[in-house]
Write a protein that binds this DNA or RNA. Structure first.
Lengths: 242, 242
DNA sequence: CGGAACATGTGACCTAAGTCAATTTACAGG
DNA sequence: CCTGTAAATTGACTTAGGTCACATGTTCCG
């Protein structure tokens, strides 16, 4: 199921870590240059093609992952096929903390994906020697927890309009090139719907409505831009009444 | 706002830690007996009356808490007053990980509450000397993250009936005395509604419906029991079609 | 013991968002 | 440059759950 291509493993990855473009922005930054060989020694670099699974729900949770480039969606299914996307991961994100014995979610590549894979046990062993990295992980978990609470508020109490506005604001914030410009959404309307607890049709209609009132512009379905940041903000936060 | 009564502070709390009924079940179990004075030295024991705030949203996040007895609800508000309960904490639970610079949520006592309060900075310093406790915190954060993902699936994709059934199952699991017996719900219908993304009326009607079809029994509003565990399970998981 | 002040339960009705059904793009592969 | 397939949009209609209104407990002080 989870068809992936393992590129390479082991200590000879040291140069890859040293030149890793996301190391400074990820939990790996807690490892100093001279200790990088230890880190590289337990890492496996993998490529995942678009649409392929990196993690499949129900599998034994043997690994942690760190995303070096690309993006993926994480989702859970109900027995009758209802799907909910619990989040997206991107360059620099750490993946797998929220797992027990087995993974409760699946992870599917949205773009060509490059990840570093660590066996849980080996990474835990490594953490004992590098408390700074454990601290970074704890902080990453705290941030994810705070984001999860935001999302619970969104799913529990926001309207469709507020959800879509919140989503676009957050996407723009995650996309450096989006500041004042249009950018490419990585996900389909269906993904957005499953992330926001809506249907495809409602997402589509809401996007159109936001476009018609001048808050956003949509050139193609995946190429959007924010035209009125203040309005988007106040819709997202529920400050606007109309 | 957050009116609380500080009972006592400092190392002379050592006997309190040693006899703490939740120590073995909490992150504090990572501290060995001989090191307990260090732990007790940075703790403040506090009592919070029902309805009083332990944490107020927007305040500077100076503290972590560990619940020794009682329960509290954690909630966030939208500007127009819509409320969402992001979770409940009970004996043994650690509280405050999901905070940035400021608390994003408020915490209100549901029952008379006893907590140990730690300054964030002091606890972080302590963690550097007790990696086992840091590991426990990381595990606690992982568990919370997994629970948050369950709740996102519930809020995004489950029906009212499935939400209420999931809630009752989870409450029963958190209440040792609930196995095969009735137990007292700690929260009002309003709290349940704000936790499940519903209204009071829908929670009330759904509880009545579950009672009428023999899945649960309700003696008084807060005293409930599970009459058909298998049915409740299959409703909660969305396995049942009718 | 009495009676506010809440909390809960239940009807009657409403609406935001879901469902169903066509079109209309958009893009990947030949 | 087609053309087949999947994604998106849009309209018409339905519905689960929300809103409003009111009756009925409960609780807990004084």
């Amino acid at each position: 199921m989870a068809i992936v291509a393992t590129v390479s493993t082991g200590t000879f990855l040291t140069p890859l870590c040293m030149s890793c473009s996301v190391r400074s922005a990820s939990v790996c930054s807690a490892i100093k240059d001279q200790d990088v060989p230890r880190l590289a020694g337990i890492a496996t670099v993998m490529d995942v093609a678009v649409g392929k699974l990196l993690i499949e729900a129900g599998e034994q949770a043997l690994y942690f992952f760190n995303v070096s480039s690309g993006a993926a969606k994480l989702y859970r299914l109900l027995p009758d096929g209802r799907r909910h996307i619990i989040g997206f991961v991107r360059s620099g994100d750490f993946l797998g903390l929220a797992a027990g014995e087995d993974y409760a979610f699946s992870a599917e590549a949205l773009t060509p994906l490059k990840v570093c894979r660590f066996t849980r046990k080996k990474l835990y062993d490594l953490l004992s020697d590098f408390p700074a990295m454990e601290r970074r992980l704890l902080q990453a978990a705290s941030n994810e927890l705070a984001a999860a609470q935001d999302q619970m508020l969104l799913l529990g109490r926001k309207t469709a309009r507020e959800r879509v506005a919140s989503f676009l604001r957050s996407e723009a914030a995650h996309t450096p090139s989006a500041q004042g410009h249009s950018w490419a959404l990585l996900m389909t309307r269906g993904d957005m719907a499953d992330y926001l607890g809506l249907t495809i049709e409602t997402v589509s209609r809401t996007m159109t409505a936001l476009r018609k009132c001048g808050v956003i512009a949509i050139s193609t379905a995946s190429d959007v831009s924010i035209e009125d940041t203040a309005a988007l903000e106040s819709i997202a936060d529920g400050t606007l009444l109309n």
